[in-house]
């Protein structure tokens, strides 16, 4: 899929949770939202994008959230 669009979507989700969630919780909330509403190939693609280039274009919170998804994916692959 168009990675620019996925980055834009992740950033917009982050903008909501950045103000609405406690700072320690915000990244988890963004990642949870993506897990609950994004189809796996969308998540895989943004995780791959992040792992290849540190997620250029992602805002800080979105990057943190995608990092959580990436870590989960690694964990589940190694399990």
């Amino acid at each position: 899929m168009n990675i620019e669009l996925l980055v834009k979507m992740a950033n917009e989700i982050s903008l909501f949770f950045a103000s609405g969630s406690a700072p320690t919780q915000a990244a988890r909330d963004v990642a949870t939202h993506m897990k609950r509403f994004w189809e796996p190939r969308m998540r895989r693609q943004i995780v791959t994008y992040y792992e290849k280039g540190q997620g250029e274009g992602l805002n800080d919170l979105a990057r943190e959230a995608v990092a959580l998804l990436a870590a989960e994916a690694r964990l589940s692959n190694s399990a």
Binding site: M1, L5, F37, E39, R41, M42
Partner: peptide, 18 residues
């Protein structure tokens, strides 16, 4: 157990061939 594609996501996935 995983969510599926939403309508706009279906269009995107079509354009990338999946």
């Amino acid at each position: 157990a995983e969510p599926g594609l939403r309508i706009p996501n279906m269009f995107e996935a079509s354009l990338d061939g999946s």
